[in-house]
Amino acid sequence: MYVPRPSRLNSTLTGAPVTYVDHFNDIAAYNIHLNVFEKAWAAWYAYLQNDVLATGIMSFVMHEVVYFGRALPFVIMDRIPYFRKYKIQAHKMPTLAEQWACARLVLLSHFTVELPQIWLFHPACQFFGLSTTVPFPSWYTMAWQIALFFVLEDAWHYWFHRVLHTPKMYKMIHKLHHQYSAPFGLAAEYASPLETMILAFGSVGIPVAFCALTKDLHVVTMYLWIVGRLFQAIDSHSGYEFPWSLHHFLPFWAGADHHDVHHEKFLGNYSSSFRWWDATMGTDIGSASEGAKKKQEKALLAQKEE
């Protein structure tokens, strides 16, 4: 990790505090080979002078901003009639009271269950060899590692999600997540603490295990993966099927079209990101677009019979 040059820290000699900008300028002057993001990253660690604190704050803030920032557009769309035509279960629109109650429980979980784990993330990084230094890995390296994590997490999620739907496990653990049969974005992490830890291992534990084996993973790659996973989870719980939804371009992608049916029927469609495990294991119960098509066909048939 970058260490500021003493000659640049005149403010320390005068007794004034050294600011984040001081560190950034110092790094920018003596590390011209770094890009602006790498300079900002190094300056953050140099400014706090406490790697555990630096990683912990950055990890928690990133998670909260991405989670609620991605869910907010769907909260707004739920209040605008124009978007009702894209809502999969338009007859079950969530109320503001339901969304606020959901947000409160999710926040409670974030501060009581996830925050302590996030605070232990940097010691885990050091123990298993995750890099926090600059420069960052190449885009190619980050891309293939993130793609691998999507595939591995999907397998973990499918099998453990399926276990959570066995009668005993469902009643003890998973039932809370199915409180909303018509899901919405904020409900992506609406779950019991035990479920959060079980399924979150696929998102966090798998990359850490990968690093333990390969000694080749940077925390910034981990962050980009978590951002992608949060986007996927929130989108799949959004309850919206758009003409531009990703599964129209990647047929094996799941998304809300796949997962909304799981919440509506409480069984099947256990995968998180992809459709192949459900297709292979015979747990594919169709998609929202297929259901809408069948309803249209029934309506047309009824009109003809009249």
Rank of each mutant, 00 (worst) to 15 (best):
D216N: 09
Y86K: 00
S138T: 10
G69W: 05
E38L: 03
A16E: 11
P137V: 04
S11K: 10
Q296N: 05
E264K: 13
H262T: 00
A212Y: 05
W44A: 05
F210K: 03
K295C: 09
V66M: 13
L164I: 10
A279K: 14
V3M: 13
L213Y: 03
A101S: 15
V220M: 06
M93F: 03
A292W: 13
S131D: 06
A40M: 11
I173A: 04
E264M: 10
E264Q: 11
W244E: 13
L301I: 12
T12P: 01
Y82L: 13
D51M: 00
L72Y: 14
K215Y: 01
R79H: 09
V65E: 04
S238A: 14
Q303F: 15
F136T: 14
M281Y: 07
P167A: 11
D78W: 03
E195C: 03
M93D: 04
Q126G: 01
P116E: 00
R84C: 09
Y45Q: 05
T112W: 14
Q126W: 01
E64W: 09
V21Q: 13
T280I: 13
L213Q: 01
E64D: 10
R229Y: 05
M142T: 13
A42F: 09
G268R: 07
S59N: 06
H165P: 01
R84T: 15
D78M: 06
Y240C: 00
T280S: 08
S131M: 01
L199I: 11
R79E: 12
